[in-house]
Amino acid sequence: MLKKSLLFWLILSPLVVVILFPFGVMFVTAFRPREELFTYPPTWTFSEFRWANFAEMWVKTNFGRALLNSLYVSVLSTVLAMILSIPAAYALSRYRFPGKRAYRTFLLMTQMMSPIVLVLGLFRMMVTLGLVNTLNSLVLTYAAFNMAFTIWMLQSYFSTIPRDLEEAAWIDGAGHLTSLLRVFLPLAVPAMAVTAIFGFINSWNEFVLALTMIRSSDGFTLPVQIYSQVAGRYQIEWHHVMAATMLATLPVAIVFSWLQRFLIRGMALGAVK
């Protein structure tokens, strides 16, 4: 076991190093005093932990506001996508109906359009709907773009839940709805949670649509807010950029590492079909 562990870590080590490298860069740049950004040759060490970088950045980049915006958009779009996906996935896994294959094909096709390609049309539509510059425009679009994936995941998972259980409850005299709520739902909750995490991460990191739809900086989500610190300015304050990136990444990374075992378990149970 020990030998195997060492061997595995040895094989994985190059990848581990490459993965951790950008995080290391982020870390040392974020804490560095500004005067030490451009020493030559560049070094991993620096004279002191400049915590003030974070405080300055928080104020300068309006970080708190962007954080709330990101949370609002990611949570609501995930909830919306789930509300719409669960019945659709249930229908796909339990019923035979006309146009089922066409519907599946349509879902796959919706994945093929990059948001960048559609940005102009989407914008025109949001103008018609009066939703430009509202976070709700992002909620709708993220939900729509995530739905294909969430439906697919939920459906493959639902198919693994034995139908006999529902039937049994049904025969016992429970109504269809009751059997759904009592028998099916509790079994499906883990899968829903896993699927929701996928949706959440996609929304949390999305950039192009947020950049286009949100016009005032009060509505910026985190990726846009951070990007605006880098893009085309006469001056880039790298220590602030990296501090912001770190703060935006850390919570997700922590939650993620805690949840990843559920992710994999969900995938396994979902036994992709």
Binding site: L12, L15, V16, I19, L20, P22, F23, V25, M26, I201, W204, N205, E206, F207, P223, I226, Y227, V230, V241, M242, T245, A248, T249, V252, A253, F256, S257, Q260, L263
Partner: peptide
């Protein structure tokens, strides 16, 4: 956890770093 880590930063930020 380490292998999954790149997922937690947005692509844009990964590229910037």
């Amino acid at each position: 956890v380490i292998i999954m880590l790149p997922w937690s930063i947005s692509l844009t930020m990964t590229a910037v770093v």
